[in-house]
Design a protein around this nucleic acid. Structure first.
Lengths: 150, 150
DNA sequence: CGTGATGGTCAGGCATCCTGACCGTAAAGG
DNA sequence: CCTTTACGGTCAGGATGCCTGACCATCACG
């Protein structure tokens, strides 16, 4: 018996609310500069560099199917953010390569995310932000939510 | 700079991961008993009681349009979880009333959520769970120290 | 070398939310 | 009053993000 958690679902629902706030801020920042990107495309960059990887690897990292990732990558290719070159080591596969435009996007994304982090640090203080980060790591472990590869 | 937050987006992305884990657990519990419910229907119960309210009020609470809420409510009505009676005080409006089946659902939902909370408390300890809750309230602007929200 | 796994792709579907357009009633102002 | 505006509810259509199924070509391995 510790704290009273008000209405049903409300308490951990705040996780979603906080995430949505952060994503909204990031999208607002980037949406100006990259109007042809949909929010889902940012998902691609949430797991380290994408350069030199296969579409299926990206899908596995992001926890979605390769078909879904295929659509995202195709869209980005069509708009000049990346190219897909044949993999010399596997003639089935194609390697994703960021273009200069794609690298610019990646950098802008990192910057937008830093803005959110700085805002949160200002509001929470550094120790509490670190505490949040540490709790979330503990809760989520290293396990990605859905290791889907169908 | 204090802590090093690895790849771009990864850090606050954990908010989403944690929320998804919790929701998945809740849905797994309830999906057995209520196969005709879609995940979005649980959203309806995330903001206190729904009994005696208008569809538009529910929409405003949930942060979605009245048209979207309309579909959810209609679905629940079609499956016997609620009825919509004319509002005696406003002949335009219809009041949502939970049926016995709907109240059973609500109770089961609360129970499933409690299970998740207990699991998290076991893993984090009571103080760290409270700390998480308090940080989230601060971040999302719900700094209500024990009272109603909004 | 055959068999199964894997990378990629096309096609189609479902869920969740949106905007636009309307009807009927309520509320507020002259 | 009566007009105007706001609001509750509903229908129709669409955007987005994800899914499953079905295939083909190639790879890896017994």
């Amino acid at each position: 018996m510790s704290t009273e958690y008000s209405s049903p679902g409300r308490w951990f629902g705040l996780l979603r609310v906080a995430f949505d706030q952060a994503m909204t801020a990031v999208e607002a920042e980037l949406g100006q500069r990259y109007p042809e990107l949909r929010p889902a495309h940012l998902q691609l960059f949430r797991f380290g560099g994408i350069d030199g990887l296969h579409t299926s690897e990206l899908a596995a990292h992001a926890g979605i199917t390769k078909q879904s990732m295929h659509e995202l990558v195709t869209h980005l290719e069509r708009h000049g953010y990346l190219t897909r070159a044949p993999d010399p080591a596997d003639s089935r596969a194609r390697l994703v390569r960021l273009t200069a435009k794609g690298r610019r996007l990646e950098k802008d994304l990192v910057r937008a995310i830093d803005v959110v982090r700085d805002d949160w640090r200002e509001r929470l203080g550094a120790e509490r932000l670190d505490e949040l980060w540490s709790i979330l790591q503990e809760l989520t472990g290293e396990v990605t939510p859905g290791g889907r590869t169908r």
